[in-house]
Design a protein around this nucleic acid. Structure first.
Lengths: 153, 153
DNA sequence: GTTTATGCAAAATATTTGCACCAGA
DNA sequence: TCTGGTGCAAATATTTTGCATAAAC
C-alpha cells in the first residue's frame, strides 16, 4: 500500500523551484509572464487545454499573448513539471507532473469528466510486454474511455 | 494460450462484406471510389495516416480527391472495420479492426516503428479499475513509447 | 428522376513561427 | 548593453465543409 501525502502549498513550491532551476540551468530568464502562468497553472484544474488556460488567464491578465502561454507551457513540459496529453479531441492538454508519480486516465465520453488512477500491477505488466519485444519504455499512455458513474444513470 | 488463425484473403472478404452491409443498411451507395479505397486500405500497412494513404492511393488512382478519402475512412470507422488512432504526432492514423480482437501499441520514438500486442491480464485489470470508479468502459487506448530493439543498439 | 457521392476549393481549427519592440540579467 | 522574451500577426498544418457536377439506385 502506497501512502501519498501531498500538501498543496509544498508541492507548488517545489515545482516553482524546479522550474526556476531549469530556467537558470538553461540560461533563460525569469519573467513576470512566466511567473504568472506558472502560478496560474499550478493552481488550476488539471487537463486544461491551451485554449482554456489562455482564456482564463487572459481574463485576469489581459496583456498576456497566446504565443507566450503556448511557449511557456512547452517550457513547463520540457522542464518536467508538466506533460502534454491528447485525448483525441484535437486539443492539446496539460497536466502537472509530480515527481515519481504516474497516473492514467478515465475519460467520460459523454460529459468529458476525467478521473485519474494508478495501478502498479498494470505498470509491471507493461514492462513485461516491453521486455518481450526488446523495447525500452520511456513513457506510456493508458486511457479508458466510457461513461462515468453519473452519465450511466 | 490463444491461437489466432487469420487467412488474409478471408479476413479481407469478411470486412468487405461487413462494409457493404453497413452501406446497404444505412441507405448509402456503393461507389467505385469506396471500393478502391477499401481494397487499398485492407491491403496496406497498418497505422497509415490519412495523408500517407491519400498520397499512395493517388499514385495509382489520380482522380481520387482528399475529401473522398477522408470521408470514406470516417465511414470505415463508423462501420466498425477501422479505427482512428492518434499517436500524438498531429496526424490521425487508421488501423483495421478485426472482430473481437483488440490490441495495443508499442511506438518507437526514434524510428517510428509500431508493434502491436495483446495482453488479457492488463485488460482485466482495466476492467477492475473502471469498476472501482463506476465507469462503463467503451474503449481504451494503451500505448508504450520508447526505443525499439533496433534503435537501442 | 432522385438521392447520394465526388472533387475542388474554401473555411474552420490548431499549432507554430517571424519579427519589431520590450525587459531581465 | 546584450541576450532572450513578448505580443501580434502571419504562416503552417490538419481537419472539415459548401457546392456544382457526376454517379448510383
Amino acid at each position: 500500500m502506497k501512502i501519498t501525502f501531498n500538501c498543496g502549498v509544498i508541492v507548488k513550491r517545489a515545482k516553482k523551484k524546479a522550474f526556476s532551476d531549469f530556467i537558470a540551468q538553461k540560461g533563460l530568464k525569469s519573467t513576470r509572464q512566466r511567473d504568472i502562468i506558472l502560478d496560474f497553472f499550478l493552481s488550476s484544474a488539471q487537463h486544461m487545454s491551451l485554449e482554456e488556460l489562455y482564456l482564463k488567464l487572459r481574463a485576469k491578465h489581459p496583456g498576456i499573448g497566446y504565443a507566450t502561454v503556448y511557449r511557456t507551457l512547452k517550457l513547463f513540459a520540457e522542464s518536467g513539471i508538466a506533460r502534454e496529453i491528447q485525448f483525441g479531441d484535437g486539443q492539446t492538454r496539460y497536466e502537472q507532473v509530480s515527481e515519481g508519480e504516474h497516473h492514467d486516465h478515465l475519460v467520460c465520453t459523454r460529459c468529458g469528466a476525467i478521473a485519474e488512477f494508478e495501478n502498479e500491477t498494470i505498470e509491471k505488466l507493461q514492462d513485461e510486454v516491453a521486455a518481450a519485444y526488446g523495447f525500452l519504455i520511456e513513457t506510456h499512455k493508458l486511457e479508458l474511455y466510457g461513461l462515468c458513474a453519473k452519465c450511466r444513470k
